[in-house]
């Protein structure tokens, strides 16, 4: 009982410590960041809860009615509140499509960043800690990778996957191919950053102390170097999340990403793009584009704030 109380006195709850932290303080001080966080939270919640909150299920072909096609948004005089942002040429509700599409966009973005993070941090740590020819090999591969624009790398992976996979399965695998394609274009940034901070940490005396104690090199890299080298990775991950979502949208817009049966935001924009010169039905393009811009802008602003807040030189 007494020891429990002492334990609580020493370590306040996680929420309490979070509210007292420098990070939260700098968060509350910046209205732009609070707004960006609110927008991100709203969009992410909407996307994750799409099956619950969306008025329609755009994948349910049986519920579509071509008579509902190209309905304008609800505030238009011929609009209808059952389709708040209007419908596309197939009669699918644009708002529902956006929510479901954002789910896919966020999944591809998040999964590709996680994959790139695992790959990049692992290889960067290996290169920085092992040094020598291992470092040389990994970093030259990274340099070659970096000299190609991200979208080109993604196109290459996508193209290779398309030629390898049977045509009828491409619809199912498209999601994973796109994720892999984007991950392989952004891992380099993680690898270079982690290698850099690994080199710095590796030369510090606490690492030498662990070597003298006789700790296994893998344990030194994992338990001593990695936690100290991870600082900038969170920032890069946040900014790259926005970048990955944009890359996915670009691929889908070019028709190389997700198919029309599983429309992401980029696919929706591509579909809407077909109507832009008609002068009418512009909502089919406009609202998915606004959703994409809002999502990536909000995430980018969060990333910028995180970079500044975690940089001790700017405090």
């Amino acid at each position: 009982m007494a020891s429990e109380a002492a334990g609580q006195g020493r370590r306040p709850g996680v929420l309490r410590r979070l509210a007292d932290s420098d990070l939260f303080w700098s968060f509350r001080r910046s209205p732009v960041t609070v707004a960006a966080a609110a927008v991100t939270l709203l969009l992410v919640l909407g996307a994750v809860l799409a099956p619950v909150v969306a008025p329609h299920n755009p994948y349910d072909l049986a519920s579509l009615n071509l008579l509902d096609a190209r309905n304008p948004p609800a505030w238009d005089e011929s609009g209808d509140w059952s389709f708040p942002l209007g419908t596309d040429d197939q009669g699918r509700d644009v708002l529902s499509s956006i929510l479901y599409g954002m789910r896919l966009s966020l999944f591809v973005g998040g999964a590709s960043v996680l994959l790139a993070l695992a790959l990049g941090v692992g290889l960067g740590l290996l290169a920085g800690y092992a040094g020598g020819w291992v470092d040389m090999l990994i970093m030259r591969i990274a340099d070659v990778q970096l000299s190609f624009p991200a979208i080109l790398v993604a196109l290459l992976v996508d193209g290779v996957a398309r030629s390898l996979l049977p045509h009828e399965r491409q619809g199912d695998t498209a999601l994973y191919v796109v994720t892999l394609a984007i991950a392989s274009s952004i891992w380099v940034q993680f690898a270079r950053t982690v290698r850099g901070s690994t080199l710095v940490e590796r030369s510090k005396e606490y690492v030498q102390a662990a070597r003298i104690i006789g700790v296994h090199p893998v344990a030194i890299a994992w338990r001593h170097v990695l936690p100290n080298a991870l600082g900038p990775v969170l920032v890069i991950a946040t900014i790259n999340l926005a970048l990955a979502i944009l890359t996915e949208a670009s691929l889908s817009f070019l028709g190389l990403g997700l198919p029309a049966t599983q429309p992401s935001l980029g696919t929706l924009i591509r579909i809407g793009d077909g109507f832009i010169f008609s002068g009418e039905w512009r909502w089919i393009l406009l609202y998915p584009a606004i959703a994409l811009a809002g999502l990536t802008l909000a995430i980018n602003l969060l990333g910028d704030w995180l970079r500044d807040a975690l940089n001790p030189k700017l405090r």
Binding site: K204, E205, Y206, Q208, A209, A210, I212, I213, G214, V215, H224, P227, N228
Partner: peptide, 27 residues
Amino acid sequence: RRRLQMIFQDPYASLNPRWRVRDIIAE
């Protein structure tokens, strides 16, 4: 190796900043 240990010059660099003292000494 256990019988041969070292003390470093810079006490600010020779301790891992993310480890509790207990874990540092227990390593």
